[in-house]
Amino acid sequence: MFVINCPYCGERDQSEFSCGGEAHIVRPKQPTELSDDEWAEYLFMRKNIKGVQFERWNHAHGCRKWFNMVRDTSNDKIHAVYKMGEKPPVI
């Protein structure tokens, strides 16, 4: 458990948020042309990084807005929070 600095609401307990997993997985532009392997890659395969990870979060019990976060999964230290559509910071 940790405190997240929501870009819209400020600092709140992590329990107010829900995690949407790995960020910056691009939705296929031509879904009909995808092979089964490519679908599996898009839907299921994850880096599941131990270390610095870029991920999506939603302030579910707050403003309900989505945003991105950079967190070290080995110690839960948060390096950066940035809005959807913004360029990911270099960590």
Binding site: E41, F44, R46, N48
Partner: peptide
């Protein structure tokens, strides 16, 4: 829990979240 860490060493991705 560290399966993905080992998989990444072999250049493999797994459908796992730890």
């Amino acid at each position: 829990g560290h399966s993905s860490v080992i998989a990444n060493m072999a250049g493999l991705k797994l459908p796992l979240e730890s």
